[in-house]
Amino acid sequence: MTPSTTEIRATGDDVRIARLAAAAIVLSVAEAAIPLPLPGVKPGLANIVILIVLLRWGWRDAVWVALLRVFAGSLLLGQFLAPGFFLSLAGSVASLAVLGLAVHLPRRWFGTVSLSLFAAFAHIGGQLVLARLWLVPHDGVFYLVPVFALAATVFGLVNGLVAGRLMREIT
């Protein structure tokens, strides 16, 4: 094999982000195996990793991990550039934007559960906006909003508690 002329040296940051993204990807691939009644209702286990990255290493790293998760996860599942990929991307972008604001809430009063709930609701919000504009250009999609909201509440709470527990273990 001819040696490459360009040399890319992975910094410590790169390695850390890659490892965290790998954890997030594993969780999203694993949860793709869980049968769920409605498309769009998912536990979103990868968000546990995103929350921990956000709280320990900041928003910039969380953006990297979340977007790597969306791209690599969809490649592994054969969803890349399929509608599901764009929904996932829209949800992630909305959720990262909201997390960027919510992370400035006072930590003493608002823990991981609040962040997780905000992220979960932003996720369904971003997905619904894209679905309404592009995939289902009809107000019928909003008929499912209560179901998505309930799923976001339940999974947001559970993921937030797990993230809080893990934060306590690693600090």
Binding site: T112, S114, P146, A152, T153
Partner: peptide, 21 residues
């Protein structure tokens, strides 16, 4: 693990579910 504001956020999320339904 729940902090005071978390209960507030959770209540708000549940209210949003009920209102939307």
């Amino acid at each position: 693990l729940m902090r005071p504001g978390d209960y507030l956020t959770l209540a708000f999320a549940l209210a949003l579910c009920l209102v939307s339904a």
